[in-house]
Design a protein around this nucleic acid. Structure first.
Length: 883
RNA sequence: GCGAAAGUGGCGGAACUGGCAGACGCGCCGGACUUAGGAUCCGGUGGCCGAGAGGCCGUGGGGGUUCGAGUCCCCCCUUUCGCACCA
């Protein structure tokens, strides 16, 4: 990387170039920043206590996985949150802005295996380093509430909550086919499988049958879904992703009797369909390769070996081929038949590779005429296709052009499935009904006659939380041969992770290797018992940490409900979109569990969510492996924290991805240095009271500067919250600074831009100038404080104020002062701007119209035409229509 | 394939409900100050025509609504993200 270092002034540790006179206003960020960071730490400036007399504001950034070093991509999020926290503090809110560590997880264990370092050592060292980084960034955290999820004081309450959930049937054990990553040697949740591969290493996922612990999140599926509508301050994108993830669909279970060779019904095959209205077109039944009956059919088939080979192929295909996208639809005839309960006809039963074993019942009725997948399957294997929904003329008229198939649908000739609206045909007693009405009528009949029932199906699965890993929360359960599964009594919590373990990296849980851990007396009968050796998914840790922050040192309970009632819900939560589904849906689930335990009073834990964009370097995401990380400490060395913060927030809106550029960073440094040169030399001269506005004689320039000052206050305040348009807020500050330079030049007090040896301490004699400059500076410094807190504190102090800049409050904008005296109004003739009129701000419409029509440029374009209409938009524009 | 978002100067980006497109910054050009400038201050900077006043064009492409469209509607192209057999 080319070093632009020499373009910056020397830091404290570096040598100064020979200059004749040291400039009065040399900006030395490092000195200032260390001074203020020390002071903030000493005064515990950002700690918070409940105070019912003040409005609270809970500002939270997603806590960090302590991977080692934070790069600017990570810290962007903390900077965004810090601006909001500092703003809200200045505006008088009681702000809770805590930070902590999502400290359990695989990388620590992998590092242990690789470097023979205990996961705890690795984790604690990383935390120490990253905490130092964040402190050097001047993020205003209440460090007194710091927590790490690997602290027994924290994970104890994971265990406590687990037992509460177990008692309520929300935590349960089941044997199930789970995702297994052969590389990480662990089970993965469905959510951790990305495109058929492990979310961390990408290795294709295999399947294994294991006894696992699950959280019954599906119990809350409907509520989690419907409450999404109330999350008005979340990005739509995230809400859509959550809706899709939950995947609610309304349909009907229908029993298709399985027939034996004699045509007698032996048992029912339960299928789930959302299109019962098309059931008269259900010409075959499809089973997933994992379906319960398939093995039985295989055994009973004429050639079990061939049957089973095909099954195995499908199951393997499922995981490997699926990753590459389209999988060719394949299947085979089981030779068995079932009866369509509506038509009474016998339909063949096939096994198909595209039917999912873990959704619905693993069996579907195939309606090839009206479902594209079934259609392709039917055409491939020559299965019958019967159209039972026909679009009417009215349907065709209502549909977008070209979207309807031509002619009457005929199963024999149609080229694709039809899933649009229409009227039922060939559907027995339902023929002639509209399809949607038929849907209800058929579901009614199925329910009435007892072979079906309406049901809601979710794509969301229960959350498997067992991990065959060491570095996580031990699941607080004991297996006793006489008593069965027994929870560890609350009094015995936490079940502490033993320190000494062999890290073999093998498949079994490392805890299972430690007899002292495994062997435990049964809490119920006192007899010999075995501890659960799996640990919890780390998403458990992160699903409620925001409540713990409200009462981080409580050793009696997870948190005091009263404290949480004061602080929660989180008012402003920011983090990466990568957590749009998992972390956020689990947290919403836990909030409801705590609610149902009577510990929190709200439903939703995060009132507002902001998903911040990533920081790219050379078009790529920063990562250690790519070697393109930008180290914040390095940047701090070069330009100081304030410039780094400024740059990251100025370069783009927070939600957007940004490309890191050193040139941009330099620009932000220049801006701050420009502020410094402007304000610092005058701080002495501006101390103390100035005369009241009424006694001052302000000229046009003075009034213009005041106007700019107050307009800037308005703009910055409006941009910062709730909009969080940090970049435009900064540009408003830059405009104010530019105007101050121009004003300073004009009124003669500006002392920058001269040669160093001309530097002198400036002063302002004229009372009016002094007053407007002081007002502007004090607004500027306070408006700057959320972005560049160190410089702002320093300048504020030099301006003669004690007690810190937060105590000074947020500047108030005076609409009267901010109001323009004159406006420049563009005049359009037939849509084109032909003149700009400078008019008094309070001009009435008639006068404005008259002035517009009288303007020579306007007349030039209306000459020889008739003015047909004049549109006056107050304070904005005049539009003239001339023909 | 389905869904969503987004396409604006050389670059990052402004433009809140239809009302002066390009704020602010980077870069570049010029000037001042200077032994020097890579510091600083001032000015310029969408394209084309013009000495100038000014004019024409211009927000991915094409159509439309409107006195007026970056913004609204329709079609198309591109990019990014999400979901990808959920019956």
């Amino acid at each position: 990387m080319p070093s632009p270092e020499r373009r910056f002034p020397p830091g404290p540790g570096r040598e100064c170039p020979p200059v004749k006179t040291v400039a009065v206003a040399e900006y030395r960020p490092q000195d200032i920043e260390q001074k203020w960071q020390r002071r903030w730490t000493e005064t515990r400036a950002f700690e918070a206590v409940e105070d019912p007399s003040r409005p609270k504001f809970y500002c939270l950034e997603m806590f960090a996985y302590p991977s080692g070093h934070a790069h600017v991509g990570h810290v962007r999020n903390y900077m965004i949150g810090d601006v909001v926290a500092r703003l809200k503090r200045a505006q008088g809110a009681n702000v809770l802005h805590p930070f902590g560590w999502d400290a359990f997880g695989l990388p620590a264990e992998n590092a242990a295996i690789k470097n023979n370092l205990h996961p705890e050592t690795w984790t604690r060292e990383n935390i120490a380093h990253m905490k130092g980084q964040l402190q050097r960034l001047g993020i205003s955290y209440a460090w007194g509430r710091e927590l790490a999820t690997c602290d027994p004081e924290y994970y104890r309450w994971n265990q406590w909550l687990f037992i509460r959930m177990y008692e309520r049937g929300l935590a349960y054990r089941k044997r199930s086919s789970v995702n297994w990553c052969p590389s990480c040697q662990t089970v993965l949740a469905n959510e951790q499988v990305v495109d058929g591969g492990c979310w961390r290493c990408g290795t294709p996922v295999e399947h294994r049958d294991l006894e696992q612990w699950f959280f019954r999140i599906t119990e809350y599926a409907d509520e989690l879904l419907s409450a999404i509508d109330g999350l008005s301050d979340w990005p739509d994108k995230v809400l859509t992703m959550q809706r899709n993830w939950i995947g609610r669909s309304e349909g009907t279970h229908v029993a298709f009797p399985l027939l034996d060779a004699t045509g007698r019904a032996v048992e029912d095959i339960d299928v789930f369909t959302t299109r019962i209205d098309t059931i008269f077109g259900a010409t075959f039944v499809l089973l997933a390769p994992e379906h319960r009956l398939v093995e039985e059919f295989a055994r009973a088939s004429s050639d079990p070996a061939v049957f089973k080979a095909a099954l195995e192929r499908f199951r393997a295909q499922d995981r490997v081929a699926r990753m590459s996208g389209e999988v060719e639809k394949e299947g085979f005839d089981t030779g068995r038949v079932a009866r369509n309960p509506f038509t009474g006809e016998a339909v063949p039963i096939w096994v198909a590779n595209f039917v999912l074993g873990d959704y619905g019942t693993g069996a579907v009725m195939a309606v090839p005429a009206h479902d594209q997948r079934d259609f392709e399957f039917a055409r491939k294997y020559g299965l019958p296709v019967t159209a039972v929904v026909q679009p009417t003329e009215a349907d065709r008229d209502a549909a977008p052009a070209g979207s309807m198939p031509a002619g009457i649908l005929d199963g024999a000739t149609m080229a694709a499935a039809y899933d649009g609206p229409g009227t039922l045909v060939a559907s027995g007693e339902f023929t002639g009904m509209r399809a949607d009405a038929g849907w209800q009528a058929m579901a009614d009949r199925a329910e009435r006659e007892g072979f079906g029932r309406r049901a809601v199906q979710y794509r969301l699965k229960d959350w498997g939380i067992s991990r065959q890993r060491y570095w996580g929360t031990p699941i607080p359960m004991i297996y006793c041969d006489t008593c069965g599964i027994v929870p560890v009594p609350d009094a015995d919590l936490p079940v502490v992770l033993p320190k000494v373990v062999e890290f073999s990296g093998k498949g079994d849980s490392p805890l299972a290797q430690i007899p002292e851990f495994v062997n435990a007396a049964c809490p119920a009968c006192g007899g010999p018992g075995r501890r659960e050796t799996d640990t919890m998914d780390t998403f458990v840790d992160s699903s409620w940490y925001f409540y713990r922050f409200c009462d981080a040192r409580n050793d009696q309970q997870a948190f005091d409900p009263a404290r949480v009632a004061y602080w929660a819900p989180v008012d402003f939560y920011s983090g990466g979109v990568e957590h749009a589904i998992l972390h956020l849906i689990y947290s919403r689930f836990f909030a409801r569990v705590f609610r149902d335990l009577g510990m929190v009073t709200h439903d939703e834990p995060f009132a507002r969510l902001l998903t911040q964009g990533m920081v790219l370097k050379d078009g790529n995401v920063m990562s250690k492996s790519k070697g393109n990380v930008v180290d914040p400490d390095e940047m701090i060395q070069r330009v100081g924290v304030d410039a780094l913060r400024m740059y990251v927030m100025f370069v783009a809106p927070p939600e957007k991805e940004v490309e890191w550029t050193d040139a941009g960073l330099e620009g932000s440094y220049r801006f701050l240095a420009r502020v410094w040169r402007l304000v610092a030399p005058l701080t002495g001269a501006l101390r103390g009271e100035t005369a009241g506005w009424a006694s001052l004689d302000l000229d046009g320039d003075d009034r213009a500067l005041r106007r700019k000052t107050h307009d800037t206050i308005r703009r910055v305040s409006a941009d910062l919250y709730p909009r969080v348009h940090l970049n435009t807020a900064i540009s408003a500050l830059m405009e104010l600074v530019n105007d101050l330079y121009a004003y300073g030049e004009k009124t003669g007090w500006l002392r920058v831009g001269r040669r160093d040896d001309e530097a002198e301490v400036p002063s302002i004699e004229r009372a009016a100038t002094k007053a407007v400059v002081k007002e502007a500076f004090e607004a500027l410094v306070r408006l700057l404080a959320p972005f560049a807190p160190h410089m702002a504190e320093e300048l504020w102090e030099r301006l003669g104020h004690e007690g810190g800049i937060v105590a000074a409050g947020w500047p108030a904008h005076d609409a009267e002062v901010a109001r323009a005296e004159a406006l420049v109004i563009p005049v359009q003739v037939n849509g084109k701007v032909r003149a700009r009129l400078t008019v008094p701000a309070d001009i009435d419409d008639a006068a404005l119209e008259a002035a517009a029509l009288a303007d020579p440029h306007v007349r030039q374009h209306t000459e020889g035409k008739t003015v047909q209409k004049v549109v006056v938009v107050k304070g904005r524009l005049v539009g003239v229509v001339a023909k």
